[in-house]
């Protein structure tokens, strides 16, 4: 049943996500700078950016429609919902039944459709290019992500993210080879979905190679702030999902206050390590051509399918 502590925990999880997400982006940026022997920007740079953007006037293109102005809020809402149902600290989330893992894919899909539509709204060359590429990455990534979810759902006998995490976190030490496959596939998909290096470059200045950046070229002021914030929330959501699914230790099982408090530093530590690794991988890889992306995501899909098959062969009762 929904308890007061559960509601508080839920509100806290959302707030934590809102606060931590820009920090995570800042941390990844800083690590990237270290890896590349540059002077690192301040850790809190994303916050300054958001503050600055919120203060600025919105400069709209003449051709921008009402959809263009609504889209940032919808995208932001989708990402908040995603962060609300992914267990970061505790699995006792009253909002969790609202969307299981399949619906979570749907949430990201909805945000993707809105950002692509918004990109094409003003009717500029780069905007439509970005929108088309984003949808391309989307339809390649979603099947792979679903196969990962299938593998996990079969292990936990549930598609509810909270139940999966609970099952995985509180089991006796059993090695699931299928999880290794699923984990690698999930990493591939997260790179593509979050516009990170092998697929897209978040720091690019070449318009023709952009995906995410090309879509938001026309945004400014509070709209841009919301989209940037939503992008960092997405990175946070994917990181938390990955951590919760493949390294679930330390997530509080229920409304246990002490466990919840203990989960916070652990989460910070895990995110810090994750961000560090992400920056490292981004540094040693080169961005690939857009038409290599199908191969990259095809590999992710194949790994996920292999995970599923291995699960059926090795881990089901013979």
């Amino acid at each position: 049943m929904i308890s007061i502590s559960g509601l508080l925990g839920q509100a806290f999880a959302i707030l934590l996500a809102l606060v931590l997400a820009p920090l995570l982006s800042g941390w990844v940026g800083q690590c990237r700078a270290w890896f590349q022997s540059r002077t690192a920007p301040p850790l809190l740079l994303p916050y300054y950016m958001l503050q600055k953007l919120f203060r600025k006037d919105v400069v709209l293109a003449h051709g921008a429609s009402s959809l263009f102005r609504v889209a940032p809020f919808v995208i932001f809402g989708c990402m908040v919902l995603a962060c609300a149902i992914i267990p970061s600290l505790s699995t006792d989330l009253p909002l969790a039944p609202a969307a299981d893992a399949l619906a979570l894919v749907g949430v990201f899909g909805l945000a993707r459709v809105f950002i692509s539509l918004a990109a094409m709204d003003v009717g500029t060359s780069f905007g439509s290019l970005g929108g088309r590429r984003e949808m391309l990455i989307g339809f390649l990534a979603e099947p792979a992500l679903l196969m990962v979810i299938f593998t996990l759902a079969m292990t936990a006998q549930s598609t509810s993210v909270a139940t999966i995490v609970e099952t995985l976190a509180h089991r006796e030490l059993v090695i699931y080879p299928s999880l290794a496959f699923a984990g690698i596939a999930f990493t591939f998909v997260s790179f593509a979905e979050n516009a990170r290096v092998p697929v897209d470059n978040p720091a690019t200045h070449l318009e023709l190679t952009m995906i995410h950046e090309a879509m938001i070229l026309e945004y400014s002021g509070r709209h841009l702030a919301l989209i940037e914030w939503a992008a960092s929330l997405k990175l946070y959501a994917y990181s938390c999902l990955g951590l919760a699914l493949f390294f679930p230790w330390g997530i509080a099982p229920g409304d246990n206050f002490l466990a919840l408090v203990a989960a916070i530093p652990l989460l910070l530590l895990k995110l810090a390590i994750g961000g560090f690794l992400l920056a490292g991988i981004e540094t040693v890889n080169a961005k690939m051509r857009i038409f290599r992306a199908p191969e990259f995501l095809g590999t992710a899909f194949m790994l996920a399918v292999l995970g599923l098959l291995v699960r059926l062969l090795l881990e089901s009762k013979v």
């Binding site: 919105v58 809402g77 909002l95 609202a98 509070r222 919301l226």
Partner: peptide, 30 residues
């Protein structure tokens, strides 16, 4: 409801804490 609430709350908060000013100009497109 969650998405709609975030949308409305977000909009209200942004306008309340900052402003709702909008200017129109030609598209940027790099």
């Amino acid at each position: 409801v969650t998405i709609a609430a975030t949308l409305l709350l977000g909009r209200w908060l942004v306008r309340h804490l900052y402003h709702g000013r909008v200017r129109r100009t030609a598209a940027w497109d790099c």
